[in-house]
Design a protein around this nucleic acid. Structure first.
Lengths: 137, 137
DNA sequence: GTAACTGCAAAATATTTGCATCCTT
DNA sequence: AAGGATGCAAATATTTTGCAGTTAC
């Protein structure tokens, strides 16, 4: 698909099979993905190492970003257009469903600002909400 | 110290040297601790395995809890009194300093509620703010 | 004395690195 | 053709498990 290749080119990355598939997976999935998801769902067996490297590259370029999680898992999700390399401004709330366990980016819900104590200067804020999602209610 | 032993007893845990030292470390440090911090800062060389088991036990009992982080690290911090085993209600904002890299529990700052899309039901929310802390400004 | 906790060894997982080969540009 | 990306092998790092010895109560 043209769009996917454009994203890669825009970030000075050569267009390879693996990168296209992984990026496509992110675009087609509504939620966030863990490393393991990617190894499974790409269908073809990718080399584990390639997945690691691809994810790192995507994070560096600002195509995807980490999502904070309370358990130990590492999740990745697509960044929105206003992200730049190394400094993403992806200010929406993430929702983790307790039932189906999917992580969903609530693009419409902005992270609220909070009043910090004297002397603290915020640069970025993340918010994760747990609960039951629309599909599982 | 009496207080520390009381916390352990209150949670039906036998009072051992390792648990006392690790718990003491949490109480005396203002911020959150990673597994590695604990191995270092307890001074004595604990067995790595004991640290893992102690942390898990403390989390199960609700003495400490995970803090969500955007990078891959796993951080732990003390829970407040209103925490119960397996179900903590620790609703304050966490602050991670970009300079000194410490993670601080802002006990006074409550996580705000956000308006979720139709059909979503929240059970818990976490918020992490990055920036520069009072000491590093 | 008994149950629970610890430490050691080792297994199972997860992540990183080096290098030769292959693919993109 | 040149540089970057991949795959394999192997090195590291992280976490879990089993079991025997030790400690708390």
């Amino acid at each position: 698909m043209v769009v996917i290749e454009d994203i890669l080119k825009k970030n000075q990355l050569s267009v390879t099979d693996g990168r296209k598939k992984i990026l496509e997976l992110f675009i087609s999935s509504e939620g966030a993905l863990a490393h393991a998801d990617i190894e499974e769902k790409t269908g073809e067996n990718f080399d584990r190492v390639t997945v690691y490297r691809t994810l790192n590259t995507f994070v560096e370029k600002g195509i995807i970003h980490h999502i904070p999680t309370t358990d130990n898992s590492i999740l990745y999700a697509l960044c929105k257009d206003n992200c730049e390399a190394g400094h993403h401004h992806d200010n929406h709330v993430h929702f983790i469903c307790d039932v189906c366990n999917k992580t969903i980016c609530l693009d419409e819900v902005t992270v609220p600002t909070v009043q910090l104590p004297e002397g603290f200067r915020p640069s970025h804020a993340e918010m994760v909400v747990n609960g039951v999602c629309g599909d599982c209610k």
